[in-house]
Write a protein that binds this DNA or RNA. Structure first.
Lengths: 214, 214, 214, 214
DNA sequence: AATGAATGAGACTTCATTCAT
DNA sequence: AATGAATGAAGTCTCATTCAT
């Protein structure tokens, strides 16, 4: 996973220092990474705690030492992702005041997330609809914040005359989000086009449209 | 589900032909409908065969009389959906020769599918990535056909100069599909905008873009 | 267990008629009897569902086909016992009007229960304090009814002048119940004294007291 | 628990003798008290070592530093209780020579124990039947001593003509013990009657009987 | 003396599936 | 065509205990 090595190098998995000393932080990370990999490939429900532990070369017992339940792990992953989203969104909101530039940046950032957090994103969209109950209250709250921020930027552009008034901001946002979210199904970091190039094309499509200029 | 009742006219709910008062055709349909409802709400893995049978007011035994396995039911649902998609696509392909009109029609048709086949669509996207093995070979083939048809229409438009050449047809198709597919997460038949109106806005967005005309 | 052979001969365990026909009633009974035996010997918590199933020569799956949970089985056993208690109490209440005779009968009946329903009684007293939650609401209600009936008979005797007025009816009842309940720890059907003889001695003790007459 | 604080005068809560500020004596006591409280409320099997440690604001590690196992703690509690019983019984045996006075004292002492050692008593009776193996050999021995002492006093009274000869001493003892033991299920220190008053009533009941004097 | 990470056995439970009727 | 008893594999989770620090 690109992310664990590039985006958070300080937690790069070291060789188990045990026996000779525990490294709980590292153990926890191993479990999360193991789960990300498996959930992405097989889905949350089709992955057993046993498999997660096995892949991290730990025991089920260790898993339950670090997480209260399988759902607790899912929540952890979701929060990790949403936290990163929120941070990025704040940065975008403050980086520019131009609606078009902002939307372009939003698209670029969304696709980059999909590429870097592939595991998180896949899980996020797959389990999105089943996150209920107290355990996920905070996740739901953050998810709504992220979605509201997306909607806010589009609505702002419409209000300030940068975007066509005959397109409902809400609908446009859904379209935008869908385009980007869907990328988790196909976007390939090692494909022929770079993620930035894909983002550029999506921006062109959303802002200027597909029609060949007259 | 609108479709399942409309596509199955009363004539097929024919008189019971069994001494005990059985109606196998109808029983089978009940099970599928029950599953659609439950899968949509809770997901495939979180729904048990028992629940499906219960909801159809039948027993597990009856379920296994009509389906070889839970996966067989899933396949049935996927094929039902893909069959309808293929039919519609053929109609679109033959209905017009204008790339823009075709894409607009593709969008309209996709959103209509989401609205009408909500259950099928949800399951389709949720389980899309896990359909492997011989059982799903046919499903996979049909899915690829549908996706190729989408890609083909966009590529055709580019080739014929109707769409901008600086946008990769493949990428544009993914964007288009994503926008529409994503609708299963939010599209509300009884919402303020009709499905056709939403389709019109999506078309505007994809073809002319969001930017306010100068 | 005396009870299954004498008190309810119609359910005496037949040889498993399977294959060649199921006998769910019998299966259920086997599981209950197996549990009674094991719970009595090792306690509820120390007995696993696996052991219960093994002893009944069935599988865990069969267990869960007949009971919703281990607690459901516990509830079943408690209700079986309380139902028998309630029936007996009603009979005692209507059999005589003499307080002393009634109390003597109560003692005799209590000890007989202990002897016949040894398993039920042991479990009843062991788990008595932990039966909470909706599942056990009915059990708790019946238990209270039984206890109220005991208290009522003693109070009635005091009120009608058959019992000393300087002994609190509530305290006397607790003493009476304790004497009898405790018998599950020692009463031995094949001991030197018959259950009826033990009951006679308890009655003498409770009614006339231990003191040698002057 | 009244006892644990009164029987352990402040002088034994001596100054911490450990560099880190440890007080092993006190720690051990905390664990026992925590366990007493929890075992009484939930039973031995339903209480985990983790809970015991938590309630004492310690860790599982500390628990295993002070006790070899959960059973070792149980044994400790049982011995604590039986030790106190043995001491009290010796005192009763030497305090009077009159069988009736002795039995009255036995009852008073038993009920007082139940009130003061509620936790110990509850655990004692609940786990009574499961204390096997070498670990509990000593406990079993002491338990038998206590029970023999009870039986002895009653038998002595019969032999000396103080108690009726037509009541089996063994049965009478069981009745007596049952009455008192059972009190752990209902005896309330802050109830309307003092423990001494309850003891007086039990004595009257056992010695003179419930029947109203002619 | 105390910590807390880790283990491993075993607990309860679910569930797709089979099969005699 | 439909039933429902039974199976067996697997799943989530608990917990007493060990051990390096």
């Amino acid at each position: 996973m690109a992310r664990t090595t590039s985006a958070r190098p300080e937690t790069t998995r070291r060789r188990q220092r045990w026996p000779g000393g525990y490294d709980p932080e590292n153990t926890r990370r191993s479990l999360i990474d193991s789960a990300l990999e498996l959930f992405e490939r097989q889905g949350f429900d089709r992955t057993s705690v046993q498999e997660i532990a096995d892949r991290a070369q730990l025991t089920k017992g260790a898993f339950y030492h670090h997480f209260e339940s399988k759902d607790d792990l899912l929540r952890t992953i979701q929060e990790e992702y949403l936290e990163a989203q929120l941070t990025a969104i704040k940065k975008i909101e403050s980086s520019s005041d131009d609606p078009k530039a902002r939307v372009a940046e939003l698209i670029r950032f969304s696709l980059t997330s999909v590429a870097e957090y592939r595991g998180h994103v896949t899980i996020f969209y797959q389990e999105r609809r089943y996150l209920t109950g107290d355990l996920f209250a905070e996740v739901t709250r953050k998810r709504d914040l992220v979605e509201a921020a997306f909607a806010g930027m589009v609505a702002d552009g419409v209000q300030r005359g940068a975007f066509r008034a005959d397109v409902d901001a809400r609908i446009a946002t859904f379209g935008l989000v869908g385009m980007c979210a869907w990328a988790y199904q196909w976007l390939n970091v090692s494909g022929p086009l770079s993620v930035d190039e894909v983002a550029r094309q999506f921006s062109a499509m959303v802002l200027q449209g597909l029609e060949a200029p007259a």
